[in-house]
């Protein structure tokens, strides 16, 4: 596996030379510092801890400062572990967008936009009950029956109901890298990625 931490910047669309328009998301990915190297001998598994985004020292705890000092870097906002990293890196080294190539298929992990408390029509794709007319009243977005009557006498576990929607960790697979700007650390990924602009996403393969 290889991966990088990035910040979603926004969406736009670009044209390829034949005139085909593609919707793309711009992500400012890296540079990430390797702040910890975990090995099978010392930790039981192989992993790299990458850190992204600078943070002021006065906003960091002493343990954070000491941890990042081992990699001789300033305190960072976000750290994430990537297991079985395919590229050999030592502590303190940086990882930039050029670990990916244009045209490569990647996975993007992010946290979706929070939608608040939503009904079953929006949350689970129910079609609602009944019609607008024929004596119906107030039932157009209702969930309908929750289950059987006396045989069970309870609502089954996992019954889909209204509730909090969004703000979930979501992984999208098979997104294509359209373009990489190494000088600005931008990576263009086809289609949309989870989360609002400015949110943290992981790009991995």
């Amino acid at each position: 596996m290889k991966g990088i931490i990035g910040k979603k910047i926004g969406m736009t669309s670009i044209f390829d030379p034949s005139g085909k328009q593609t919707a793309c998301t711009i992500i400012e990915a890296g540079p990430c510092v390797v702040t910890q190297v975990k090995t099978k001998e010392s930790d039981g598994y192989n992993a790299l801890q990458l850190s992204f985004g600078d943070k002021k020292e006065k906003h960091s705890t002493q343990s954070e400062i000491n941890h990042f000092a081992k990699a001789t870097t300033a305190p960072k906002k976000f750290s994430k572990e990537f297991r079985n990293f395919s590229i050999e890196k030592n502590i303190g080294e940086t990882i930039t967008v050029d670990i990916f190539a244009e045209g490569e298929s990647v996975e993007v992990v992010g946290t979706t936009k929070g939608k608040g408390f939503q009904g079953v029509v929006k949350r689970h794709g129910f079609s609602g009950v009944g019609e607008q007319t024929h004596g119906q009243h107030d039932r157009q977005r209702a969930p309908g029956s929750l289950g059987n009557s006396s045989d069970a006498s309870r609502v089954m576990k996992g019954m889909r109901m209204a509730g909090r929607m969004g703000n979930d960790r979501v992984k999208l697979k098979g997104l294509k890298v359209v373009k990489i700007f190494t000088d600005k650390n931008y990576i263009l990924i086809s289609g949309s990625v989870p989360g609002h602009n400015g949110s943290i996403v992981l790009i991995q393969k």
Binding site: I9, T12, I14, F15, I26
Partner: peptide, 11 residues
């Protein structure tokens, strides 16, 4: 960033 990307790529 969006402006930068288009200055590089768009006609």
């Amino acid at each position: 960033a969006i402006k930068y990307v288009h200055e590089q790529l768009s006609s």
